[in-house]
Simulated assay, not measured.
Amino acid sequence: MQSKNHFLLVDFLKTFAALTIILHHFSSYGQIAEDARLLLPGLMTWLFEYGRYAVQIFLVMGGYLAAQSLTRTSNLQNPRAVLKTIFNRYLRLFAPYVVALILTIICAWFARFWVQDEFVGESETMGQFLAHLFFLQGILGLDSISAGVWYVAIDWQLYAILAIMFSMFPGYRSLMWILAVLCVSSLLFFNRSGVYENYFIYFIGAYGLGVLAQLCKNYPDPLVNRVAKFFFIGIGFVILISTFHQLWIRNILAYVVAIALVIWGDWAYKDHGKEQRRGHESRTHKIVNAILWGSRRSYCAFLIHFSFVLLANTLYIAWGMSQRHEGVLAIALMLVAIAASWIAANFLYRWVEVPSRSLKL
């Protein structure tokens, strides 16, 4: 199974980042996480401390794919076309996002009967729900209904800003100058203060690296390629020099991911049909299919998994398993919940995300 719009490294990074974020959240919330840490203290602590850095992969990938999409969008110089593009992006994110929010609210309602933990939160209000529908919860200072939904709001902000920039600077050279300034400002200043974390400027450093990675290699104009490489390398030197003052792992990770996309981002899937023997797929073919399957469902898995964090902790406490404080039991339930998250993501993808793609202006 191959899609002309899919590439091996891109799909691997999407699947890997989604799985890492899911593991990070399962290692961060509730009694299950505490008891699992008793059995695997090193692994669970690492996931808790460093699993969140997978967001950098999402950001770089987001910029890379957004630039790919916008460079192929015609008539962006027309303000109405720009608004249509931005709104269609909102619609693309909206349907599975809303379904996941509703499921999370239901699971949180059940959880409050047994789980006395801060991560469950207070009962949701209508104003809070409406703010989430318009991606305003962070800007308005409201509690998030689900872990990770802040990223959806930020992704839409970044895409909207990039679409506006593409419309204002169709020659791309001025765009890359401004983008480079925003990247450096974000990486060295805005990204180091929590005051800005609900706004695009906090994240545009990693996102902009993805945009430049796309323009470095895949844009048909050689002049644009050269200018993009100049800025890409320049930002790399800035990141390197800044590490002598203070080491920021997320900046280094974002740049490494961007480099990987420049080098291997256009690796297409190989035809494994010849590797099949007696009707059985080769091991490599199965792995490739698994990566593609996970990539397509990564957004839905990212959205829906927090519901299973809530459900797993509710079952763990309601059935009295938490009183034993057995790490093996906690790990087993965690793995079942993670598998259930991907199964649910499959249905959310097939029943909601795919049909909703027809919602366009």
Rank of each mutant, 00 (worst) to 15 (best):
V184K: 01
A268M: 12
V211F: 09
L240N: 03
L215S: 05
S186Q: 05
G208I: 06
G234I: 09
F306N: 05
Q276H: 14
V262Y: 04
V238K: 07
L187H: 08
I259K: 02
I287F: 14
Y299L: 10
W293V: 00
V195H: 08
Y299K: 00
F302C: 00
A213E: 07
V227N: 01
L215G: 09
E281D: 15
L240A: 14
N289G: 15
Y299Q: 13
V211K: 00
L187N: 03
L187C: 05
I241D: 05
G205C: 11
R192F: 12
I291P: 04
S193Y: 13
P222N: 10
S193L: 12
W293Y: 13
R297P: 08
Q246M: 04
Y269E: 06
L311A: 10
A206F: 00
D271F: 06
G294N: 05
E281G: 10
G273W: 11
W248L: 04
I287C: 13
A228I: 05
A228N: 03
D221P: 04
F232E: 00
A254R: 03
I291M: 14
I252E: 11
H245P: 06
F203T: 04
V195K: 11
H285L: 15
N289H: 05
G194D: 08
V256H: 01
V257A: 00
